[in-house]
Design a protein around this nucleic acid. Structure first.
Length: 217
DNA sequence: TGCCAGGCCGGGT
DNA sequence: ACCCGGCATGGC
């Protein structure tokens, strides 16, 4: 991984240490979490996940046999809950129809094909698809979120009008396609965003990347 | 009290 | 190909 993304990664790792995101959860819980966390704080998602667990429906069969209005009520705390209940149902329908309800079979698909299939599902856009691929299935598909965009733009690694695909291609070209590295890199960007570059403003004070060399690749 | 959080969809230009 | 309003709760 050549400069400057490599130094960027090193600086983040040195400052924040390994993140080990989403440990101890099953791939299915990661899929559900990826849908529920869209434009929503993780604390609100945790409440929803806890309610699904308490109702013993946090599984493929569990969600399949839960009526959509009831599902909506269980995930209420995650916001947009009618939309998200519908979206979860859409994913379950896809999983059953195309892969016999088996996440293992789904994740066994080649990355590009699975990504295309996920993007066909209502409620799954690029970031959610990549989150499912990377965190749920260990596919090396880089996740580009608001933090990633904000930090890279602030440090002049991308232009303000860069598309999702532009940014993802930057990582895919410059970072070896290793899911562990993608996982860690993205988690570090989120942590840096939360801690230093969160709100609008000229520049984050005390940012560990402040002395990072500017100029695009 | 108002703003925002690890987006996405559908309709309009 | 972009742009925008709508979707909704909980925390600070």
């Amino acid at each position: 991984m050549p400069t400057p993304l490599r130094r960027f990664y090193r600086a983040l790792l040195a400052r924040f240490g390994p993140q080990h995101w989403w440990p101890g959860e099953t791939p299915f819980e990661i899929v559900v979490g990826a849908i529920l966390t869209q434009n929503t704080s993780w604390t609100n998602v945790e409440k929803a996940m806890a309610r699904l667990k308490a109702a013993a429906v946090l599984s493929v069969e569990g969600l399949e046999t839960t009526a959509e209005p009831q599902l909506a009520e269980l995930i209420r705390s995650s916001g947009y809950y009618h939309q998200k209940a519908r979206n979860l149902k859409a994913f379950l329908t896809y999983l059953r129809r195309e892969h016999g309800g088996s996440l293992d079979r789904m994740f066994a698909l080649p990355t590009p094909r699975l990504r295309r299939e996920l993007l066909q599902i209502r409620g799954i856009g690029e970031e959610t698809a990549d989150s499912i691929l990377l965190y749920g299935g260990g596919h090396a598909s880089f996740v580009v979120d608001a933090y990633t965009r904000r930090i890279l733009e602030r440090h002049s690694l991308i232009e303000g009008n860069a598309s999702y695909q532009d940014i993802q291609e930057l990582f895919h070209r410059r970072v070896p396609p290793d899911a562990q590295v993608y996982n860690e890199f993205h988690a570090l960007l989120v942590e840096a965003g939360k801690r230093h570059c969160l709100r609008a403003g000229p520049r984050c004070a005390g940012c560990p990347l402040e002395r990072f060399p500017h100029g695009a690749e």
